[in-house]
Design a protein around this nucleic acid. Structure first.
Lengths: 182, 182
DNA sequence: AAGCTAAAGTTCGATGCTAAAGACTACATA
DNA sequence: TATGTAGTCTTTAGCATCGAACTTTAGCTT
């Protein structure tokens, strides 16, 4: 008992209560924050996934496009750098690029100055896809934060970056195999 | 150039600047919050992954143990319910349970009252693993929030649950195939 | 009671990932 | 110039996942 919707997921409050029932020495305030962060992130990823699907690409594609665009003009990176940036193995990057080349989102060519290197370059179609995805994403994000007053937004941003600084300092960029960048 | 550490990841500030450079009509405040949320979550998952690895289990195992424990004594669920709870297909659940049975974390038996059903039950070893994982997790979580004053914690919890309520109301539990529960 | 329908779980084929091995290129050194 | 060495990408083998087909069981319907 206690499950609100069928079995999909208990409410956050129910879940915290269950944690307290099964584990002593638990700070409900901490658990509330941490679990809300996780859930929020999952919901955001679901939303992004819907939007990219709507555009005919995958979240995986979107990540690559994002990395290329954010690298700045002329929107070129090597597969190895892309892999590091996205937290993938180079092997996975090879296949991902294979697919994206056939989809026309990026071009792959050999670096003529160093023929062991490969250059992945954003196509104009790829850049356009990224822009469309960004338009959808920003609408969703603005809607998500709609209920927050301006000063709450400032405060939230400040607190989150403080947490981030703490955890990034603690684990100074260990090759985190847990994708889902930014 | 702007990249702080090799290529692993730009700082949050650098990234926001890149977004603004490549995309007009962007609210940096919103983007800061959203990107901080994503990064924070990824770092947390990396940390949890290290801890579970330390205990000789995977994050996948941990999710299943969590669902079983939080379901309350006698810590039994069907594979289908577990799959819904974790956002997996029943097929994936079958294999995951196979592995966890051989690891001694759960037992699998047929339901005698309805022989098409299967019951997955937490073993005492499984419960003990979950408790150990929780001990590690709570230490990490408390450390993460260490710099937050009590009133900041209250505020953060309140704001996050407000965001969560908004997004959960918007997508009322669509079978989000994006794992990483709670 | 026989057969239909729905539900639960497993099996099958394909995809994407990792880790490790392999192939190729550039650069340094002798 | 020959060769070792490091770096970059690709290939291979193994594993987890998904979507869909399949098997088994329970409960209805007639």
């Amino acid at each position: 008992m206690g499950d609100t919707s069928g079995l999909g997921e208990p409410t956050l409050e129910e879940q915290i209560a269950a944690y307290q029932r099964e584990f002593q020495d638990l700070d409900p305030q901490v658990e509330k924050i941490v679990n809300a962060l996780s859930r929020l992130n999952r919901r955001m990823n679901v939303a992004y996934g819907r939007q990219t699907a709507e555009l005919g690409i995958t979240n995986a594609d979107w990540e690559v496009l994002k990395a290329l665009v954010l690298s700045g003009a002329p929107y070129r990176m090597g597969p190895g750098d892309l892999a590091k940036r996205l937290g993938l193995t180079p092997a996975a990057m090879t296949h991902r690029i294979d697919r994206m080349v056939t989809e026309g989102l990026v071009d792959r060519e050999r670096d003529e100055t160093n023929r062991v290197r490969v250059i992945v370059e954003l196509t104009s179609a790829g850049r356009e896809k990224w822009l469309e995805a960004m338009r959808l994403a920003t609408v969703f994000e603005e809607d998500l934060l709609q209920d927050l007053a301006p000063d709450e937004r400032v405060m939230l941003g400040e607190v989150l970056t403080r947490l981030l600084r703490r955890v990034e300092h603690a684990q100074p960029d260990a090759g985190g195999r847990l994708s889902d960048l930014d």
